[in-house]
Design a binder for these strands. Structure first.
Length: 419
DNA sequence: TCTGGGGTCCTAGGACCC
DNA sequence: TCTGGGGTCCTAGGACCC
């Protein structure tokens, strides 16, 4: 048996944990730039606030119904996530951290202790000790655990646990789950499935698995098996190395000129390079892209992107920034209103695995010692105490965050995006 | 005026190899 | 008369997740 532990309304719950006045109040959390709703408390859901609602469309209603809104505070949520996962490991020996607010856990053998009692006790303690309410679903496969988790949240909210441990329960649960609520089935596939007369998870669980592969893909085939109780997606106890590290952000004010865009790009590059070093990795290449406002009906649209390779795999911020800047210059064209710029570090490898370049003599030793001091100063004194000149000082491209909560659980030097 | 950001995996097609 | 078969690697695009 596999369980999934999922935090309820995670970002909204984090805001509440340190602000008790928000208990039982409608609370929403906004995306970057305070643009759209990305988390809602139950009270906010009950008032009809939908997921991804544009903030400007609900401003009126928020005032009227006294709904509290917060800019997203990923420093806080990330730290809370770490704490919850540490607590989880007290109860389960094999844990796969799946996302910021979800972990899969191995429940093998727990039947001997009374599975329900054990899981219920874990759920109550994780909730109490972290301050963030969680739900646990358990089933024979990851996909069934996700189905069980939905039921725990919807039908057994105060208990917070649901276990699919008989075939009768499995069939009933699948019949009560729309096919688009199945893990791995998104909007596009739902439309195609509906057109073929498949509406709920049970319908999907009884199709021929070869048909699923031929008409969709091996992924949907696995989903069908998983719904039948045959496990195809194993617990991944060892977190695989990242393949890419990316950062893109929309500008607080849309930009037309190269200079501020280059400045924003340099700052995003500094952030991804820090992340890269924290994970003891090197980047072999980078991708840079630009985007205009795709919601505009009148603006000319332009979404260029470009890939380039580094001379040698590197984590040296000044080099990555200059490389990113070159890439930007190659794709930037005057005459467009730009909404965002982004960078992705690609071809990642471990620090010890970087292949040298016969034709390029780079003084890695010197770079390593410089960047170590660089990181040390910034760790002790706050991000960007020392920075590359290209990062600039104007920051008029910076995203909007007008309702940011406090960094309740972290030090100044842990703060990454705020200055 | 105004709609997020960071990831993964699979597939098809093109270029190339012998 | 009439032009193979088996393979790899890379990229772009599409789908999905939270």
């Amino acid at each position: 048996m596999i369980g999934i532990i999922d935090c309820n309304n995670f970002y909204a719950s984090c805001e509440r944990t340190f602000n008790p006045a928000l208990q039982n109040q409608p609370v929403v959390v906004f995306s970057n730039n305070d643009g759209a709703v990305i988390a809602r408390s139950e009270e906010a859901k009950a008032l009809g606030i939908t997921m991804a609602a544009p903030v400007f469309k609900i401003k009126e209603m928020m005032k009227l119904k006294q709904i509290q809104g917060f800019s997203s505070n990923y420093t806080l949520y990330g730290d809370m996530s770490k704490r919850i996962k540490a607590i989880t490991r007290n109860f389960f020996s094999a844990v796969e951290d799946y996302s910021i607010d979800e972990s899969f856990v191995d429940c093998k053998g727990l039947q001997l202790l009374n599975l329900y009692n054990y899981v219920k006790d874990a759920r109550d303690k994780i909730t109490q000790w972290s301050g963030v309410p969680v739900s646990i679903g358990v089933g024979a496969t990851k996909t069934l655990a996700k189905v069980a988790n939905r039921i725990a949240k919807k039908q057994y909210r105060s208990i917070g646990v649901y276990i699919i441990d008989t075939d009768e329960k499995r069939i009933e649960a699948l019949k009560n789950t729309n096919v688009n609520d199945v893990w791995g089935v998104g909007g596009r596939i739902t439309a195609k499935l509906n057109a073929k007369g498949i509406y709920n998870a049970f319908d999907l669980s009884v199709v021929d698995t070869n048909w699923a592969k031929a008409n969709f893909s091996v992924l949907l085939q696995k989903t069908v098996y998983e719904l039948q109780g045959i496990s195809c997606i194993p617990l991944e106890l060892q977190t695989p190395n990242k393949q890419v590290i990316a950062s893109q952000k929309s500008f607080g004010v849309f930009q037309t000129e190269l200079e501020p865009i280059a400045e924003a790009l340099a700052n995003y590059t500094a952030r991804v390079a820090e992340k890269l070093r924290k994970q003891k990795m090197l980047a072999g290449g980078i991708q840079v892209w630009l985007g205009t406002n795709n919601f505009s009906k009148t603006d000319k649209q332009y979404f260029p992107k470009i890939n380039t390779m580094c001379n040698v795999p590197t984590d040296y911020t000044p080099y990555l920034i200059s490389k990113a800047n070159q890439a930007l210059n190659a794709i930037y064209k005057k005459g467009y209103v730009y909404k965002r710029v982004g960078i992705m570090l690609t071809h990642l490898c471990h620090q010890t695995d970087g292949t040298l370049n016969l034709f390029y003599n780079q003084n890695r030793k010197r770079e390593i010692s410089i960047i170590k001091q660089f990181d040390k100063i910034n760790r002790l004194n706050g991000t960007d105490t020392v920075k590359v000149a290209q990062q600039g000082f104007k920051n008029n491209w910076h995203m909007k965050q007008e309702n940011l909560s406090q960094f309740y659980t972290t030090r100044l030097s842990d703060i990454i995006d705020i200055k």
